[in-house]
Design a protein around this nucleic acid. Sequence first.
DNA 1: CGTACAATACCCCAATGTAGGTATTTTATG
DNA 2: CATAAAATACCTACATTGGGGTATTGTACG
Lengths: 213, 213
Amino acid sequence: MLLPTPARILLIDDHRLFNDGLKLLLNEQPDLTVCGQVFRATDVVTAVNTLQPDLILLDVNLQGVNGIDLAKKISSAFQSIRIIMLTMYDQPKLLEETRKAGLHGYLLKDTTTPELLNAIRSVLQGKTSFDDAILTGRLSEDAFGDDFARRLNLTFREVEIIKLIIAGLTNEQIAEELGISVFTVKTHRKNIHFKLGITNVAELIQFAIKNGL
Amino acid sequence: MLLPTPARILLIDDHRLFNDGLKLLLNEQPDLTVCGQVFRATDVVTAVNTLQPDLILLDVNLQGVNGIDLAKKISSAFQSIRIIMLTMYDQPKLLEETRKAGLHGYLLKDTTTPELLNAIRSVLQGKTSFDDAILTGRLSEDAFGDDFARRLNLTFREVEIIKLIIAGLTNEQIAEELGISVFTVKTHRKNIHFKLGITNVAELIQFAIKNGL
DNA sequence: CGTACAATACCCCAATGTAGGTATTTTATG
DNA sequence: CATAAAATACCTACATTGGGGTATTGTACG
């Protein structure tokens, strides 16, 4: 399991506190060492060049810069470097893009530390690691909050669908995701609109934001 | 500056990695100690009760639960506990709510570690601490405008239209609001989609949120 | 055993959004 | 004044959503 010398990890994330915290976290591990931290997209290229990391933990969103595009560039220039995307949100689309781009992992920032370490070590060994929470149904259990649902008399299924709508999925994609008919999705959507007193997606998202997305 | 015994800090944030990282970060300081970590809103009350922290770092957004409401509850039940809100985004509204609620600080997660420590120590001494980045710069009026627009090469008009889309207006309503043709609105909308690399309203709003609505 | 509710599925049609064009006018700038 | 960028306007076509129905199934509860 342990490599002869600690694996060199580069952290790229504009949230400084998160970045700093992660550094401490990883440096506690004997087989891992953080060789550098980057906070801005513009600093990435030189950092990768000079630091020669084995693995990069990369935020999908660097103040408006698309992390996945960035990852692709790095990946094509340095094929040996392994890259794990870190993200705040579980967006199926980003997950898909990440896989298609041939990157090595996609993790949510609310994974636990052991899970992160696991993922890093797997990826260093040549495997890939995609967050279970995304693949399976973390969405279904909690996330959106009892509170919200209860106040507005939303059912479990409705909340589930709201989340997928907000994630940017179309009715058809939602239907596929949940394994139900598009008609059913539309029915739920109508009920949601009725319960919330709204008429379109934008208002739905407004609502979600106000009530704590 | 240093207290006789380390100040007890409770971390409330559902992003586990961030939470864990922060713990290490703070425990490195001789005058601070993390007395507990909470990952779910439902665990907050008992944690506060049993751990008796001096100060709480609280994420504004706990999987659907409004962090500010939570903070108010804590604050009214335990007046001596000082609370600093942590957030990913600079939302003027939340900042205002935080101040009105009589809480003691509001920090962005992309502040630096020294800034965080500074803020914590100030608050422990009875002062308040609101992130400069929020108070001064871009936020004040046009958070959305400048920065966001510049980064993404959006024009003034495009930003204007984005705001109206997010407000839930249809193309027709936007056209009327701005005194232009629906066709023009559609054109702008296409350009926006192109520049942002998105395909529908939900994604647009996602984008706006991430980049600081 | 009814009743209530959640979840499912379908139909129709209108309204709105998305995507590909092309093209003119205005404004800012070297 | 020439050029670029921004803002404007229109067209066609298709995709998706929105709102009005109706109806079946399973499950929980008194």
